[in-house]
Design a protein around this nucleic acid. Sequence first.
RNA 1: GUGGGUGUAGUUCAGUUGGCAGAGCGCCAGGUUGUGGCCCUGGAGGCCGUGGGUUCAAAUCCCAUCACCCACCCCA
Length: 423
Amino acid sequence: MPPLTAVRGFKDILPDEMTPWAAVEGKARDLARRYGFSEIRVPVAERTELFARGIGETTDIVEKEMYTMEDRGGGKITLRPEATAGIARAVMEHGILASARTARLFFIGPMFRYERPQKGRLRQFHQLDCEIFGDPGPWVDAEAIDLLWRLLSELEVPGLTLAVNTLGCPECRPSYRESLVRYLEGGRDRLCEDCLARLARNPLRVLDCKNPGCRELAVGAPRITDSACPACRDHFRGVLDALDSLGIAASVDPLLVRGLDYYARTAFEVLAGGLGAQNAVAGGGRYDGLLKALGGPDLPGIGFAAGLERIALLLPPQAPASGPDYFLAPLCPEALAPLFRLAGTLRAKGLSVAADWEPGSLKSRLRKADRAAASRCVVLGGTELEGGYALVRDLKTGEQIRAGLENLEPLAGDPGAPAPAAG
RNA sequence: GUGGGUGUAGUUCAGUUGGCAGAGCGCCAGGUUGUGGCCCUGGAGGCCGUGGGUUCAAAUCCCAUCACCCACCCCA
C-alpha cells in the first residue's frame, strides 16, 4: 500500500516554517488591540445558503469553488470560502449591534476554495479578517485601510501598493451599470468569451479582466468615479482626504472591482511584487447591504481580508525561534531515570527542557543539544552517577559546572572544568 | 476547467548512444578509552511516482495514469 499523502491543495506548515506565521499573527493581534478590535471565532462550516446570499449567486466562488456537502440531516453545508458572511451572521444572531451601536471584530482562520493550486494559492488557506459594523462614515473606511497598511508596513512586507476605488451605491450603480453595458456592447467583438458572459450577469467585472482586448476596451469605459451620486462622491472624497491626512499614499484605480457582490462604495486592494501572478495580498471594502441581504437590520459595514500565506511568502527572513533552556543527555541506561525526574523538576519550575531518552556517546548528545539550539546541556554518565552530580554545560561559552542531580543547584567547591577550545 | 514543466535515498539533485542505483547535505558510528561544531574513515537508508508496452536487457525508449510546481482563470 502506497503511503498516504495530504489532500491536494491542503498543505502542512512544518515547524521550520512557523516563524513567519507567528510574526504575522502576533502583529495582527497587536494591531487589532491598538485599533480597538475584539477577536471572534466563527465555525468552519455554515449553511450553504448563507454564502449564496451573502457572496452572490453569480460569483465564481459560489458557482464553482465551494466545498459543499449534505450533512446527515439532509441540510446543505459549506466550508467557508471567506469569513465576512459568517461573522455577519454571528453579529446578527447574537444581537451584537443591538447592545452597541458599532462592533469591531477580527478573525484569523482557515478558508476553503476548490481552485487549482499554484504559488500563493491553496485550497485551504488562511486569512486575517477585520470588520467594522454599524458605522456609515468615511472615517472608519480610512481607519480600516490604515490598520491594514500599518500591519503590512510594520511587518516590513516589501513592494506594497495601495489601490482604492468607489463602487457606487444602490442609488447610482444601476444607471452607471447601464451606461457601462451600453459602452461595452459597442465593443463586443473585442471582449473575451468570459467577459461576454459577464456583460449580462456582472458587467463591472469586465473592468478588471486581464485579457488584452478587454483591457483596452475597459480603459476607455465610463468611470464610476465620474457618474457616482453626490453622496458617494462625498464619501469617497472623505476617505481619500482621511488617508491623505495619515500620509498613506493611495492611488485611485477606477478599474478596481471586487469579486463579491455585497460591496458598495469604498473598495481597496493591496498588491505586492514577488508573489508571481497571485499578487493581491489583501482586499476589502464597504458592504452596506450585506446585513439586510442576510435578513438582518439595514446597517452598514466595512472590512478587509488579508492572505496569510501570501504575506508569509513575502516576509524578510526571521530570526529562528530560540531553543529550550536545557537539553538532557544520558550517556548510559542508568542515567535515564534520574534525568527523567530532573526534567519534571525543571519543567515544574517553568524552565523548558528537551531530552533524548536514548543513551549515546557524549559527542553525539552534544551535537543533538546544539541542533536543538538549547542553552545548556545536562550530561549524566557513569562517572557522574558515582559522584552523585551532573555536568551542566553552557553551550554558548563552553563552561561547565557540577550540579546537584535533584535540582541542578551548583555544588559548593566545584572548581569548574573548562572545556577544550573548539577546533 | 485549459496549458507548460518536474517526478531517482529523509532532503537537494546527478545518472552519457538502453548495460550492476550515484553524489552533497542530514542521520548512525569510529578516529579521539568521556568533552560537540572543523577534518578523516566507515555504515544505515531506494517498488528510480504508478500501471502497461518495446527489448536479451529499461531510471533511461513508447503509451496511459497519478501527484507536485508554474501559468491561464479567479482571488487573499
